[in-house]
């Protein structure tokens, strides 16, 4: 008798998994449907994928999304790395600092987004890529911070003591021991920050200026204009990218310490 098994838990769990994955699978299947109307399945085709590849606005939006996610995730990871190193040891005010660092996770995104819009407009900062990068960097910080912090917490301080004992000064210790051991956490943090920024819709929606639409913003306005197979295809692409990146960061996190 297994104590951890309760009646019907398994059945409910499987139903929940179906609930979680069937919509996504349906979307993916439709993206390969040659027929323009969604109700009729004709045959499989890559037409819509070729079509989105050729679409200049989608290409521009994709490029914007990548630049935005790459820049914000890099900045957020660097900032978070420094913060994680600083909060490693206890000091008065550490709890407050940690709460501040997690703030973007707690606050409703729409509120922060419109507040940032308000700030930028009243300061005369023009909307667009620069504004989005700033805002994305801010909300990506906790996503980068948490995995790095988790890695640091799981890392015994004796490795660094050993390095200093073996004549490496503080900087060399950081370079030769701390950083290599921390690396999987940093990569996981970067990946999560990248995915978060890439997937973000709300903040970009308010802060994107003319000509700097990101992919999610493009998809939103396209949906508003009517469902098309192209949207299915581009959505599927976004899903696949996210899933790949998250799986990557998951495995980085599981990497043996």
């Amino acid at each position: 008798m297994n104590l951890r098994r309760f009646p019907v838990m398994r059945e409910i769990s499987i139903a929940v998994l179906v609930f979680l994955y069937v919509p996504v699978i349906v979307l993916t299947v439709y993206s390969f449907n040659a027929n323009r109307t969604a109700t009729v399945w004709t045959h499989a085709s890559f037409d819509w994928y070729l079509r989105i590849l050729a679409n200049p606005s989608i290409r521009a939006a994709t490029w914007n999304s990548i630049v935005l996610a790459g820049t914000s995730a890099t900045a957020a990871t660097l900032i978070a790395l420094l913060a994680a190193l600083a909060t490693r040891r206890a000091f008065p005010g550490r709890d407050t600092t940690e709460t501040l660092l997690r703030l973007p996770l707690i606050l409703p995104e729409i509120v922060v987004a419109v507040a940032t819009l308000l700030l930028f407009v009243s300061l005369g900062v023009s909307l667009g890529l620069g504004a989005m990068i700033a805002a994305h960097t801010a909300f990506c910080i906790p996503f980068a911070y948490l995995p790095i912090r988790a890695r640091l917490d799981g890392m015994s301080g004796s490795y660094e003591e050993a390095a200093q004992d073996l004549y490496a000064d503080r900087f060399r210790t950081f370079r030769r021991v701390t950083m290599p051991l921390l690396w999987p956490g940093v990569m996981a943090g970067f990946t999560l920050a990248f995915v978060t920024s890439l997937d973000d819709f709300l903040t970009s929606f308010f802060l994107s200026g003319p000509g700097t639409t990101t992919l999610p913003v493009y998809i939103f306005s396209a949906i508003r204009a009517g469902i098309t197979p192209e949207i299915n295809a581009i959505s599927t692409v976004m899903l696949v990218i996210s899933i790949l990146l998250v799986s990557l960061s998951f495995f980085l996190g599981q990497l043996r310490r």
Partner: peptide, 25 residues
């Protein structure tokens, strides 16, 4: 991993998937 993936995939896209499932036609 299976539970974490939806957590990180695009909110917009996941809601759009329901739009496709539930739509009139």
């Amino acid at each position: 991993l299976l539970v974490t993936i939806p957590f990180w995939t695009n909110l917009l896209v996941r809601n759009y998937a329901w739009l496709i499932i539930l739509r009139e036609d």
